[in-house]
Amino acid sequence: MVDLNAVACCPPLAARPLEAEQAALIAPMFKALGDPVRLRLMSMIASVPEVCVCDLTAAFDLSGPTISHHLKVLREAGLVDAERRGTWVWYRVKPDALRQLSALLDVSSTTRVRARTTSRP
């Protein structure tokens, strides 16, 4: 499981290089999103408040166990939460995880700072 508090400690990549420990904590999140099926699943989950696994499975030409494996990877990476209701499992995105990845990839503030320090009067 990825510790989201540890990820929050990291400045944007464009601000300064990550320490080895920081990179090791964050890499599983990016690795989980590096698979096309998982990226699509993440998009489907993030685009609604919550979604049933039955709807996710129906959207792919893959077996139920394969989809379950991909969803487990997303859960273990700290990107989604799951809740069993009867025979179905419902998934929802962890907004803090996406905010932290977004902040890590943010270049807007560092671009402005670099532009000011490199511009000539």
Rank of each mutant, 00 (worst) to 15 (best):
K72P: 06
T110S: 05
D61S: 14
M29N: 08
A14M: 10
P121Y: 02
E21F: 10
V48P: 09
K94D: 03
R40S: 13
S47A: 13
D35K: 07
V93H: 01
M29W: 06
K72T: 15
R114C: 07
V53N: 14
S109W: 01
R114G: 00
N5G: 14
M1Q: 12
S108M: 07
S43Y: 05
D35T: 06
S108Y: 10
M42A: 15
I67M: 10
R40W: 07
L56W: 11
A15K: 13
A82C: 09
T118P: 00
G34Q: 08
T110W: 01
Q100A: 00
I26W: 07
R85F: 06
H70P: 02
D55P: 03
A97G: 00
R75E: 15
S109M: 00
G86M: 04
I45Q: 05
S119D: 06
D61V: 10
L13F: 12
K94F: 01
A115T: 07
V73P: 11
V51I: 15
A115D: 02
A59D: 01
A58H: 09
E19Y: 11
G34F: 09
Q22W: 07
G78T: 03
W90N: 07
Q100K: 02
L62V: 03
Q22C: 13
L25N: 11
V53M: 13
A32K: 05
L74Y: 01
I26S: 07
P17W: 02
M29I: 09
R40G: 07
L18Y: 09
I45M: 05
V37T: 14
P121R: 10
I67L: 12
S119W: 05
E83D: 10
A46D: 09
T110P: 00
A14K: 04
T111N: 06
W88H: 15
L62E: 07
M1G: 14
L79T: 05
A23G: 13
P28H: 06
V89F: 05
T87I: 12
L18S: 13
D106R: 01
V80M: 01
A20F: 09
A14G: 11
P11A: 13
V2K: 02
L39I: 09
R84I: 13
R112N: 05
P36S: 12
S102E: 00
D61G: 10
L104A: 02
A6G: 08
L62S: 08
Q100H: 13
S109P: 01
T57E: 12
M29F: 11
G78V: 03
V73I: 15
L71F: 04
A58P: 11
S63D: 08
V89L: 09
P12D: 02
L39R: 15
P28T: 04
I45V: 12
F60C: 03
M29Q: 14
L33M: 15
L104T: 00
R112S: 05
H69G: 11
A14S: 15
V80G: 03
P28G: 09
V73Y: 04
W90H: 09
A103N: 07
L56F: 11
P36L: 03
V73D: 02
A82P: 06
S119V: 13
A103P: 00
L18E: 12
R99E: 11
L25D: 15
R116G: 00
P95N: 04
A24H: 07
R116A: 04
F60V: 01
Q100C: 03
D81H: 13
